[in-house]
Amino acid sequence: MKFGILINEGPFTHQASDTAYHFTKAALEKGHDVPRVFFYYDGVNNANKLSEPQADDRNLVKLWGQLAAEKNVDLVVCVAAGMRRGIKDENLADGFRISGLGQLVEAGMGCDRLMMFGD
């Protein structure tokens, strides 16, 4: 099955991005496709390369980037939501790209399921 993923919360205040990460990883390991993950609302903060969690905590910014590199997942950050929150090319983490909301609608159109992780 082809899954599109929508993440609406940042990497620390809410569990949403963690759950989405584990879901995406598990789906890929089971042989499903996850061609695109779209980051919206505070979810854009998952792409902030200036984020520095403590050494004994997980680093979702890096984990997403690694997953994207290993499994060829398209990580898209909403441009409008990102600009409001200061996520721009200057501080965009490896593996992510910035684009428009049309990329979310396309993921909904082109995938069998669109899974939303958020509040």
């Binding site: 992510f96 993921a107 909904g108």
Partner: peptide, 16 residues
């Protein structure tokens, strides 16, 4: 960074 191209030509879905 793998930019993915979806086949959306003629696709009509219902969004809620």
């Amino acid at each position: 960074m793998a930019e993915y191209e979806f086949e959306t030509e003629g696709v009509k879905k219902t969004f809620t």
